[in-house]
Protein backbone atom coordinates (compact mmCIF):
# COMPACT_ATOMS: atom_id res chain seq x y z
CA UNK A 1 0.00 0.00 0.00
CA UNK A 2 2.94 2.32 0.68
CA UNK A 3 5.91 0.79 -1.10
CA UNK A 4 4.30 0.34 -4.53
CA UNK A 5 3.19 3.97 -4.99
CA UNK A 6 6.61 5.10 -3.76
CA UNK A 7 8.56 2.97 -6.22
CA UNK A 8 6.19 3.90 -9.04
CA UNK A 9 6.48 7.61 -8.20
CA UNK A 10 10.28 7.40 -8.16
CA UNK A 11 10.30 5.58 -11.51
CA UNK A 12 7.89 8.04 -13.15
CA UNK A 13 9.59 11.15 -11.71
CA UNK A 14 13.07 9.90 -12.71
CA UNK A 15 12.12 9.15 -16.31
CA UNK A 16 10.10 12.37 -16.62
CA UNK A 17 13.10 14.34 -15.32
CA UNK A 18 15.43 12.77 -17.89
CA UNK A 19 13.03 13.68 -20.72
CA UNK A 20 12.50 17.18 -19.27
CA UNK A 21 16.25 17.66 -19.05
CA UNK A 22 16.87 16.71 -22.68
CA UNK A 23 13.89 18.71 -24.01
CA UNK A 24 14.48 21.63 -21.62
CA UNK A 25 18.17 22.03 -22.51
CA UNK A 26 17.37 21.81 -26.21
CA UNK A 27 14.55 24.37 -25.99
CA UNK A 28 16.61 26.72 -23.82
CA UNK A 29 19.50 26.48 -26.29
CA UNK A 30 17.26 27.28 -29.26
CA UNK A 31 15.38 30.07 -27.48
CA UNK A 32 18.56 31.82 -26.30
CA UNK A 33 20.39 31.45 -29.62
CA UNK A 34 17.84 31.87 -32.38
CA UNK A 35 15.23 34.37 -33.42
CA UNK A 36 12.28 33.11 -35.42
CA UNK A 37 8.72 34.23 -36.11
CA UNK A 38 6.38 33.16 -33.34
CA UNK A 39 9.18 32.92 -30.77
CA UNK A 40 7.15 34.75 -28.13
CA UNK A 41 4.18 32.45 -28.67
CA UNK A 42 6.48 29.40 -28.41
CA UNK A 43 7.88 30.77 -25.15
CA UNK A 44 4.35 31.14 -23.73
CA UNK A 45 3.41 27.65 -24.91
CA UNK A 46 6.39 26.09 -23.08
CA UNK A 47 5.60 28.00 -19.89
CA UNK A 48 1.82 27.53 -20.03
CA UNK A 49 1.63 24.22 -18.09
CA UNK A 50 3.15 26.06 -15.10
CA UNK A 51 0.13 28.38 -14.78
CA UNK A 52 -2.69 26.24 -16.18
CA UNK A 53 -4.59 24.05 -13.72
CA UNK A 54 -3.13 20.54 -14.08
CA UNK A 55 -6.63 19.28 -14.88
CA UNK A 56 -6.64 21.52 -17.96
CA UNK A 57 -3.23 20.18 -19.04
CA UNK A 58 -4.51 16.66 -18.38
CA UNK A 59 -7.66 17.29 -20.40
CA UNK A 60 -5.64 18.62 -23.36
CA UNK A 61 -3.34 15.59 -23.16
CA UNK A 62 -6.39 13.34 -23.13
CA UNK A 63 -7.78 15.05 -26.24
CA UNK A 64 -4.43 14.67 -27.99
CA UNK A 65 -3.29 11.28 -26.73
CA UNK A 66 -6.53 9.51 -25.83
CA UNK A 67 -7.35 6.40 -27.86
CA UNK A 68 -9.57 8.50 -30.12
CA UNK A 69 -7.30 11.55 -29.85
CA UNK A 70 -5.47 13.20 -32.74
CA UNK A 71 -2.10 11.63 -31.94
CA UNK A 72 -3.43 8.88 -29.66
CA UNK A 73 -5.49 7.13 -32.37
CA UNK A 74 -2.43 6.94 -34.58
CA UNK A 75 -0.28 5.62 -31.71
CA UNK A 76 -3.06 3.14 -30.81
CA UNK A 77 -3.00 1.73 -34.36
CA UNK A 78 0.66 0.91 -33.72
CA UNK A 79 -0.19 -0.76 -30.44
CA UNK A 80 0.90 2.09 -28.17
CA UNK A 81 -1.49 3.49 -25.61
CA UNK A 82 -0.54 6.26 -23.21
CA UNK A 83 -3.92 6.37 -21.49
CA UNK A 84 -4.21 4.47 -18.21
CA UNK A 85 -0.55 3.48 -18.30
CA UNK A 86 2.52 4.58 -16.39
CA UNK A 87 3.97 6.02 -19.62
CA UNK A 88 1.00 8.41 -19.69
CA UNK A 89 1.91 9.45 -16.15
CA UNK A 90 5.50 10.08 -17.32
CA UNK A 91 4.20 12.29 -20.13
CA UNK A 92 1.94 14.25 -17.77
CA UNK A 93 4.76 14.74 -15.25
CA UNK A 94 7.17 15.73 -18.01
CA UNK A 95 4.88 18.36 -19.55
CA UNK A 96 3.83 19.85 -16.23
CA UNK A 97 7.43 20.11 -14.94
CA UNK A 98 9.09 21.15 -18.21
CA UNK A 99 8.54 24.90 -17.60
CA UNK A 100 10.60 24.67 -14.38
CA UNK A 101 13.47 22.95 -16.18
CA UNK A 102 13.26 25.31 -19.13
CA UNK A 103 13.19 28.50 -17.04
CA UNK A 104 16.02 27.32 -14.84
CA UNK A 105 18.31 26.24 -17.69
CA UNK A 106 17.50 29.30 -19.79
CA UNK A 107 18.25 31.72 -16.94
CA UNK A 108 21.57 30.02 -16.25
CA UNK A 109 22.56 30.01 -19.94
CA UNK A 110 21.84 33.74 -20.20
CA UNK A 111 23.89 34.35 -17.06
CA UNK A 112 27.10 32.90 -18.53
CA UNK A 113 29.48 35.81 -19.22
CA UNK A 114 29.63 36.15 -23.05
CA UNK A 115 33.40 36.82 -22.86
CA UNK A 116 33.96 33.05 -22.44
CA UNK A 117 32.05 32.34 -25.63
CA UNK A 118 33.97 35.08 -27.42
CA UNK A 119 37.27 33.61 -26.22
CA UNK A 120 36.24 30.14 -27.42
CA UNK A 121 35.24 31.58 -30.80
CA UNK A 122 38.65 33.21 -31.27
CA UNK A 123 40.21 29.84 -30.40
CA UNK A 124 38.52 28.27 -33.40
CA UNK A 125 35.64 26.50 -31.66
CA UNK A 126 32.39 25.84 -33.52
CA UNK A 127 29.15 27.11 -31.97
CA UNK A 128 28.12 23.61 -30.92
CA UNK A 129 31.51 22.93 -29.33
CA UNK A 130 31.20 26.23 -27.45
CA UNK A 131 27.77 25.23 -26.18
CA UNK A 132 28.80 21.77 -24.93
CA UNK A 133 32.25 22.61 -23.59
CA UNK A 134 31.89 26.18 -22.30
CA UNK A 135 28.32 27.47 -21.96
CA UNK A 136 26.65 24.35 -20.59
CA UNK A 137 29.35 23.46 -18.02
CA UNK A 138 29.30 27.07 -16.75
CA UNK A 139 25.51 26.94 -16.49
CA UNK A 140 25.81 23.76 -14.41
CA UNK A 141 24.29 25.08 -11.15
CA UNK A 142 21.15 26.19 -13.02
CA UNK A 143 20.85 22.76 -14.59
CA UNK A 144 21.16 21.05 -11.22
CA UNK A 145 18.39 23.26 -9.78
CA UNK A 146 16.30 22.56 -12.88
CA UNK A 147 16.73 18.82 -12.32
CA UNK A 148 15.87 19.04 -8.61
CA UNK A 149 12.78 21.21 -9.17
CA UNK A 150 11.59 19.08 -12.07
CA UNK A 151 12.03 15.91 -10.05
CA UNK A 152 10.14 17.38 -7.07
CA UNK A 153 7.35 18.69 -9.31
CA UNK A 154 7.08 15.36 -11.15
CA UNK A 155 6.92 13.51 -7.87
CA UNK A 156 4.06 15.72 -6.73
CA UNK A 157 2.10 15.70 -9.99
CA UNK A 158 -1.56 14.88 -9.38
CA UNK A 159 -4.20 16.46 -11.64
CA UNK A 160 -2.85 15.79 -15.11
CA UNK A 161 -1.71 12.31 -14.06
CA UNK A 162 -5.18 11.42 -12.79
CA UNK A 163 -6.77 12.68 -16.04
CA UNK A 164 -4.57 10.71 -18.41
CA UNK A 165 -3.24 7.76 -16.43
CA UNK A 166 -6.07 7.26 -13.96
CA UNK A 167 -5.72 5.67 -10.53
CA UNK A 168 -4.80 2.04 -11.00
CA UNK A 169 -3.08 0.65 -7.88
CA UNK A 170 0.27 -0.90 -8.75
CA UNK A 171 0.11 0.49 -12.30
CA UNK A 172 -0.50 4.23 -12.29
CA UNK A 173 -1.14 5.03 -8.63
CA UNK A 174 1.63 7.42 -7.59
CA UNK A 175 2.11 8.85 -4.08
CA UNK A 176 -0.14 11.93 -4.57
CA UNK A 177 -2.93 9.74 -5.98
CA UNK A 178 -2.49 7.20 -3.19
CA UNK A 179 -2.76 10.04 -0.63
CA UNK A 180 -5.95 11.37 -2.18
CA UNK A 181 -7.65 8.01 -2.39
CA UNK A 182 -6.41 6.87 1.06
CA UNK A 183 -7.79 10.00 2.69
CA UNK A 184 -10.99 9.71 0.63
CA UNK A 185 -11.55 6.18 1.88
CA UNK A 186 -10.69 7.09 5.47
CA UNK A 187 -7.31 5.25 5.57
CA UNK A 188 -5.62 8.04 7.51
CA UNK A 189 -2.60 5.94 8.55
CA UNK A 190 -1.50 5.40 4.94
CA UNK A 191 -2.30 9.01 4.06
CA UNK A 192 -0.29 10.30 7.06
CA UNK A 193 2.75 8.17 6.25
CA UNK A 194 2.77 9.16 2.57
CA UNK A 195 2.22 12.86 3.37
CA UNK A 196 5.11 12.69 5.85
CA UNK A 197 7.40 11.05 3.31
CA UNK A 198 6.50 13.54 0.55
CA UNK A 199 6.93 16.58 2.76
CA UNK A 200 10.21 15.38 4.29
CA UNK A 201 11.61 14.42 0.91
CA UNK A 202 10.71 17.73 -0.75
CA UNK A 203 12.06 19.68 2.23
CA UNK A 204 15.39 17.83 2.20
CA UNK A 205 15.70 18.14 -1.57
CA UNK A 206 15.15 21.92 -1.69
CA UNK A 207 17.22 22.46 1.48
CA UNK A 208 20.23 20.56 0.08
CA UNK A 209 19.87 22.30 -3.25
CA UNK A 210 19.82 25.75 -1.65
CA UNK A 211 22.88 24.95 0.50
CA UNK A 212 24.73 23.68 -2.55
CA UNK A 213 23.79 26.70 -4.66
CA UNK A 214 24.85 29.04 -1.86
CA UNK A 215 28.24 27.34 -1.83
CA UNK A 216 28.44 27.89 -5.58
CA UNK A 217 27.39 31.54 -5.16
CA UNK A 218 24.26 30.97 -7.19
CA UNK A 219 20.78 32.29 -6.39
CA UNK A 220 18.85 29.97 -4.13
CA UNK A 221 15.24 29.06 -4.71
CA UNK A 222 12.48 30.86 -2.79
Amino acid sequence: MILKPMLLSLKIASIATIFSLIIGVYLAKVMTKKDFPGKNAAEVLITLPMVLPPSVTGYILLILFGRRGIIGSWLYSMGISLVFSWTGAVMAACIVSLPLMYQSVKASLINVDPVFQKAARTLGASESRIFWTVTLPLAWPGIVSGVALTFARSLGEFGATLMIAGNIPGKTQTIPLAIYFASDSGDMVTANILVGIMTAFSFILIYSLNSWLKKKNFHSIG
Partner: peptide, 11 residues
Amino acid sequence: YLFQSYALFPH
Protein backbone atom coordinates in the same frame (compact mmCIF):
# COMPACT_ATOMS: atom_id res chain seq x y z
CA TYR B 1 43.03 37.36 -28.60
CA LEU B 2 44.02 38.05 -25.03
CA PHE B 3 41.02 39.61 -23.31
CA GLN B 4 41.36 42.27 -20.64
CA SER B 5 39.69 39.95 -18.11
CA TYR B 6 41.72 37.00 -19.54
CA ALA B 7 38.46 35.01 -19.94
CA LEU B 8 40.14 31.80 -18.78
CA PHE B 9 37.55 29.02 -18.71
CA PRO B 10 37.01 28.66 -14.96
CA HIS B 11 36.02 24.98 -15.13
